[in-house]
């Protein structure tokens, strides 16, 4: 797929996503507000009970900043996981029209996925900026131009890695009647083991070492910790290398599952 076509598809999708403005604002305010309120109350109670200044290396203010960033970054990494994805085309037989087009189906869908990130990016800028102003930069002390520059490729890697895993789960629709449950299961597992639910430093040390070698950390914890300046350059390089290795694994897996699935695709939908 040419870069021009990729950009065109992504732009079209971004426009489509921004056309449902009521949904956007409900989702943005209620979604972020509820998620953040939950975190605030939970950690307020936790810090009050623990009687310590820091839990898992985070003070209360740093913990709040971690969650603000992880909530917003997770939206950008995940994009739209369920709607308009490959499984829908397989179930409804809509894949047919893409198969005869002279372009990559994966490229087309990924372009759509990138376009669908626009609402998440707007929310990230809006709520991130608002928090930065309201908090007076408390908890953001570690953020520098260098950490921002390191975080951007980490977020790009996370988005692509997440998309490839989710793509593979969608493509299982060639065999399974409904892949929704698999996607939800993936979401739960990735949130817990990737640091979107709690910072990974809250897990026992032995478990943290294991998690460093799994793909989940590259999805949420690595970009967020990098942005907040909690990761050294060497640790960032190590994390990115692990993420890239998993990217290769995910790409090979996605390709293999797609090829096998296409061989038995009937094109009539269910």
């Amino acid at each position: 797929m040419s870069p021009g076509l990729f950009l065109h598809v992504a732009t079209m999708e971004a426009r489509r996503r921004m056309s449902y403005r009521v949904d956007f604002w409900i989702n943005a305010i209620a979604g972020f507000g509820a998620e953040f309120a939950l975190v605030w109350f939970l950690w307020k109670a936790m810090f009050a009970m623990s009687g310590t200044e820091a839990i898992g290396g985070y003070t209360f203010d740093q913990m709040l900043v971690y969650y603000v960033v992880v909530i917003l970054v997770a939206k950008v990494v995940r994009g739209v996981e369920f709607e308009g994805q490959a499984s829908e085309d397989i179930y409804q037989g809509g894949l047919n029209r893409y198969l005869v087009l002279p372009g990559s189906y994966f490229g087309f869908k990924y372009a759509q996925s990138i376009g669908s990130l626009l609402p998440a990016l707007v929310q990230a800028v809006l709520f991130g900026g608002l928090w930065l102003v309201l908090s007076g930069r408390t908890g953001f002390e570690g953020v520098t131009p260098a950490t921002v520059a390191m975080a951007i490729p980490a977020i790009v890697l996370a988005n692509l890695l997440h998309y490839l895993f989710v793509w593979t789960l969608h493509v299982i629709a060639f065999w399974a009647d409904n892949v929704w449950s698999l996607l939800v299961a993936w979401r739960h597992a990735a949130a817990l083991l990737g640091g979107a639910m709690i910072p990974l430093t809250l897990f026992p040390t032995g478990m943290q070492s294991t998690l460093e070698w799994l793909p989940f950390r590259a999805l949420f914890a690595l970009p967020v910790e990098t942005l907040l300046g909690r990761v050294t350059f060497e640790a960032w390089v190590d994390g990115m290398l692990v993420g890239c290795a998993w990217l290769v694994v995910a790409a090979l897996l996605a390709r293999a599952v797609w090829r096998r699935g296409c061989l038995q695709y009937s094109g009539i939908g269910i």
């Binding site: 449902y20 009521v22 949904d23 409900i26 989702n27 209620a30 979604g31 509820a34």
Partner: peptide
């Protein structure tokens, strides 16, 4: 359109 309410 109930998507927003459902998400809420």
């Amino acid at each position: 359109n109930a998507a927003g309410l459902r998400d809420t």
